[in-house]
Simulated assay, not measured.
Amino acid sequence: MRYRKAFNGLARSLMIGLGTIGVTACSVAQQDSFTLVTELPPGFQIRGEAQYVPRPGETCTVPVKKGRAHPGFKFFKQAHSEKPQTAQFQVPLTSVEGGCPLVLDSFDYEVDAKYGPAHDNVGRDYTGIAFQQNVADNPNSPTPLQLKRQCEWLFRTAGPDRYIVKILKCAPIATPEQESGAVANGPLQRSHLAGKTLNVQFSVAAEERPYMRDTWIKFPEGWKRCMGDSLEDAYAFCRGNTTKFKPFKMPDGRDCSVYPNCTE
Rank of each mutant, 00 (worst) to 15 (best):
Q133H: 05
I129G: 00
D161W: 09
Y126H: 14
V135C: 13
S141L: 13
N134D: 15
N140G: 09
P144M: 06
T157Q: 11
R149Q: 13
P142W: 06
L147A: 06
Q133K: 12
Q133A: 15
P139L: 05
V135A: 15
N140R: 14
Q133R: 12
V135Q: 15
Q150Y: 01
P144D: 05
I129K: 03
C151A: 04
D125S: 15
R162S: 10
R156L: 07
D161C: 05
P139E: 07
F131Y: 02
D125W: 11
A130I: 01
P139H: 02
P144L: 04
P144H: 08
Y126A: 13
Q132N: 05
Q133W: 01
T127N: 12
L145R: 09
K148C: 05
G159P: 00
D125L: 08
S141W: 12
T127Q: 12
Q150R: 10
T143L: 07
I129D: 00
E152Q: 12
A136T: 15
P160N: 06
N140S: 14
F155R: 03
L154Y: 01
A158K: 13
E152T: 10
C151Y: 04
P144A: 10
N138T: 09
G128D: 00
V135F: 11
K148T: 05
T157L: 05
L154K: 09
D137K: 13
W153N: 05
T127V: 12
D161T: 14
T143E: 04
P139R: 03
L147Q: 08
R156D: 10
D137Q: 12
I129V: 08
Q150T: 06
L147S: 07
Q133D: 10
T127F: 06
Y126G: 12
N134I: 09
N138Y: 03
D137M: 11
P144C: 07
L154F: 04
A158T: 10
N140A: 15
P142N: 11
A136G: 15
N140L: 14
Q150K: 07
I129R: 01
T157H: 11
S141G: 07
R162K: 13
A158W: 07
L145Q: 09
N140F: 13
L147D: 05
S141A: 14
P144G: 06
R162A: 11
D137S: 15
R149T: 10
R149C: 02
T143G: 08
Q132S: 09
P139C: 08
L145Y: 04
F131N: 01
R156A: 12
P160G: 02
G159A: 12
R149W: 03
L145C: 02
T157C: 05
F131T: 03
I129S: 00
R149Y: 10
V135H: 14
G159C: 06
N140V: 11
T127M: 07
F131H: 01
D125E: 13
Q150W: 03
P160F: 01
T157E: 09
R162I: 00
T157G: 07
G128T: 03
V135W: 13
F155G: 09
